[in-house]
Every structure is written in structure tokens, then in C-alpha cells.
Amino acid sequence: MILDYFQYEFMQRALLSALVVGLCAPTVGVFLVQKRLALIGDGLGHVALTGVAVGFLTGAAPVWTTLAVTVAAAVVMELLRAKSKTSGDVALAMLFYGGLAGGVYLTGIASDKGVANLQQYLFGSLLTAGWSEVWTIVIGGAAVAALMLVLRPWLTAICADEQYARVSGLPVAALNLLLLVTTAVTVSVSMRAVGILLVSALLVIPVVTVQQFTRSFKATMFASMAAGFLISGAGVLTSAAQDVPPGATIVLIGVAVFLVTAVAAALTRRVRQTRRAHLPPEGEPLEVELPANA
């Protein structure tokens, strides 16, 4: 019986952490997808690698060094994007290269201090997390989700139409920065669960899965939280049953769910085309005189 696994405390901790990350990551991801920055989580994930290496080097807890490094990278990236001519994808590319190289370089320097541990951050190691790490995830996740839910209308506005938001006098620069810093916090606290190379998946996959069926932003946000929760839970249960790494299992289940729903959505759209909720708009009258058919 699968529930037998949960008599072990480490399994309870693993499940709790994964469920919290699955529930909270999409609240940030929905704005990133809206802003067409779906890969930013992955970019900050690469930077997080440098953060973990700084932790090895200094002996500090990797969660906190990662948090510091990713938040700093997020601020630099937003300043680059806003103040210079650097485009978003160039800034992103620099994050990928620099973060990965920094991580490998610093780990090389710290080679005597537990390099074997690096893999647990790359791909996640829920099973070895202690209660203090679980509480970090729960508190960080709750803070992130609360902030995103409260600021939803404002963040939607800056992500959907930044120019309009600026003309309405919204604090666009501050909100952009807040969104990126929140992403950095999410990456840092969820790396225990899914690993820093896969963290982007839990930001994005639940959102792109449910948005195929939703009509409103609000519904997309809540449905993606539910989807992330279910995907994470299913991933932990499957990985426990098969004794495989939970991070990879969660992501694979997510990708599979996305593919299945994409096919299902394409089919429903085909059905809906014949039974539309509201009539298609009338076109302009054709401003030419058609030659009469002889």
C-alpha cells in the first residue's frame, strides 16, 4: 500500500515540501508566463548553482547563500533590462552562462568541502531534508503565494501591458523588481524539492497546462495552483513507489500532463468551433461590386 511509505517521517517531510512548492510556485509562474519570461526561473536556477557553491565555500547554509545570490542576480537583470539596451533574452542568456560557470568554478575551489552534495541541489533531494528546511519552504512559499495573490491585479497589469500600466501611474519599475525578486525567492526555497535545474518546471508547467482551458486570469491562477499541488503530490508518491528521484518524477509527470491536456484542448476547440458561446463578429461589408454570374 502506497500510504505505508508515509509512516516514515522523511516521507512526510518530502510530501509536505513538494506540495507546498507545487501550490506556491505557479502563483509566480502565472505572471512570468504572461510576461513571456517563462525561462527566467531556469535562468535564476543556473545562478542558484553559484549560490550553492558559495555556500560550500563559506560553510554557510546553501539556502541563504542561494537566496542572496539569486536576489542579487534578479536585481541586476531587471536593471539591465530596464536601464540599458540589453534585451530580456540576452540578459537571460548571460544568467545561464554566468550562473553555471560560477557554480562549477566555485565548487572547484571548494572541492574538499562536500562536492558530492552538489547533485542534491541540481536535481533535488527531498528525502534528506530536515524539518528546519521544510519550514523554510513552508514559510517562504506561503509568503510568496500571499504576496502574489494580494498584488494580482497590479502584477497582471504590468505583465499584460506595461506601457498602459506606466500611463496609469502604477509603480511599474518597483513591481517588475518585486516580481523578479519573488521568483528568486521561489527558486531558492524550492531547490530542495525539485532541484535548481528543474525548478522552472513547477513555475511554468501548471500554468501553461491550465490556461488551455481557462477564460480568466483569476481562474488560471487558482487552477494552476491546484494543478501544481496535484502534480507534485503525484510525483512524490510515484517516486516513493519506484525509488527514483522525486524532482525528475514530478517534472516528467508535469510534462506528460501538459501533453495530454494539449491534445485534449485541441480536440475540445474543434468541438467548440461548431458550437460557439457567442457568434463570430460580422465583417465589413465588401466594398466592391461582384460581377453578376452570367
Binding site: L151, T156, C159, A160, V207, Q211, S216, F217
Partner: peptide, 25 residues
């Protein structure tokens, strides 16, 4: 845009300048 929004949601962006940050409509 990327994520679906209803017409009412888009129009409500026009009221954000009247609301304090974080306060409900």
C-alpha cells in the same frame, strides 16, 4: 496576451490607479 484574461479583467486595469496597492476593488 499570454495568459487568458476576461474583458472585465482588462477593463478593471483602468481602475488600478484609483486603488491603493494591495487593496481589494
Amino acid at each position: 496576451s499570454g495568459v487568458p484574461s476576461t474583458a472585465a479583467e482588462v477593463v478593471s486595469q483602468g481602475r488600478l490607479a484609483h486603488r491603493l496597492l494591495g487593496m481589494p476593488a
